[in-house]
Amino acid sequence: MTTSTGVEELPIRSGDDVVRVRQLVRARAQEVRLSLVDQTKLVTAASELARNTLVHGGSGTATVETLHRDGRAGIRAVFADEGPGIPDVDQALTPGWTSGSGLGLGLSGARKLVDEFAIDTAVGRGTTVTVVKWTR
């Protein structure tokens, strides 16, 4: 069974908010003693996703919580916006595919850096991306 503790939500409305999300995720990853490499991967993924929330969603929120399951701990981060949504998720997850502004590594790159990745999106309704990184 998975239990969750310490839910914190931050707004994402500016570049400074993206930095604050990174700092929160870093602090929580240190708390559960993720390795330095895993911390760096999770914070990098959070940075990509928080930027997506800001740039593509217009604004949104990041929710960070600590998970416990079978003696392991993990960090879950959820990025939610009410922007235009993603018409073709498979295409958006293809490395190198870009909607125009970047390298196309944001979403596909974030997925590679975490243990669990889920995306829920609908055109006109918004996008929610959930990532989890577990201790080893």
């Binding site: 490499v37 760096t40 991967k41 990098t44 490395p95 390298l103 590594l105 790159g109 590679k112 850096l113």
Partner: peptide, 14 residues
Amino acid sequence: MRPAVAITLVELGL
């Protein structure tokens, strides 16, 4: 560049 940053960049495909 920190080692963890290098590892992450390569995994990211950058």
